[in-house]
Simulated scan of single mutants.
Amino acid sequence: MFSKLFGRKEAAPVSALPEIRNVTLGRTLWVDPLAWRRLGSERRFPLDQDTLEITAQGLVDLKEGGFVHRFYTDDHAMFQAVSDDREGQRVTDITIFVPWESTYPGGRADRDAWAQRLRARTFTSAGLPDYTRFWFGEEAESQDPVTFWEDLHDDRDGVPDRRIFQTCMLFSRELPGDARELLLAIEQETEDGEVSFEVMLGVPLEVGEFKA
């Protein structure tokens, strides 16, 4: 999903890379499978394991007092925590996402079509049920997506190995028993101009449903 950019890096303190409730690059994360099994037979979330080896870590500065912390496995499962502070002491939301589909645009027309899908009230994709816009609510027919840069780390020296520009929107669908399944739709572009479209399925987590 991510293309690595090579280059010389300057050393930085290890503390520059946050730990979120003991989760950080190089550690093993256990997630309670009941977090998604409780969704029942209608779920599409495809994770089939409860132990995740964290091999990359991302950090997003939302520039409005919030931060997104992301922890990746080699097969691109993503554990995500949103916090009010860079150190992750005030976590407000925890989610785990798994890749569903990754495609590459053939040209400008494909990117324009994808942008329209991100703005729509409902996200539709072959092989999936419909998901409705979760961010910003469903009232508006069209809604601009969220954009940000993510700094990606492959080691704990605190210096980003690469940066990815992302344009994304979060959708969801309700399941029986007040459960919710999430869909994150992303256009991402590397610093060298490689563009891809990503669809990830996710479930929200409670603090007691994971440990590292």
Rank of each mutant, 00 (worst) to 15 (best):
R27I: 00
G106Q: 13
V82R: 09
I94D: 00
T122L: 02
Y104I: 04
R117Y: 12
P176T: 08
P204W: 01
E101K: 12
V82Y: 05
R70I: 00
R180H: 06
T122W: 07
R180L: 07
Y104H: 11
I94A: 02
F197V: 05
P145V: 01
M78D: 06
A212V: 01
A115K: 14
G127S: 08
A113G: 12
L175T: 07
R38N: 13
L59P: 01
R173F: 08
V159T: 14
W149C: 11
P204Y: 01
P204Q: 06
Q166E: 15
M78H: 03
G65S: 05
G26V: 01
D161E: 12
A140K: 13
R108Y: 11
G66F: 14
M78S: 04
T92P: 06
E187M: 13
F123A: 11
D151H: 15
R108V: 13
E53P: 01
L184Q: 07
W149Y: 15
L128W: 07
T147G: 07
L62P: 04
D192W: 05
V195S: 08
R111S: 11
Q188L: 07
D32W: 03
V91R: 04
E138P: 01
V14D: 12
W149H: 13
D144N: 13
V60Q: 11
R38Q: 14
L5Q: 13
R162Q: 09
L184E: 05
G7K: 05
L5D: 08
V195I: 15
H153R: 01
L170G: 05
Q80D: 00
P160N: 08
L59E: 07
Q143W: 07
I20G: 03
Q143T: 13
L39I: 01
I54C: 00
P18I: 00
G26I: 00
E87A: 14
E10R: 14
A212F: 03
G137A: 09
E53A: 11
L29C: 06
R163K: 14
A120S: 15
G107A: 08
A56L: 08
E194P: 02
D161F: 04
A120H: 07
F67S: 04
R38V: 01
F197K: 05
V203A: 06
Q116H: 14
R180T: 13
R163I: 01
R8L: 15
E42K: 12
K211C: 09
R108C: 03
E189T: 14
I20C: 11
T147D: 15
S41F: 04
E174Q: 15
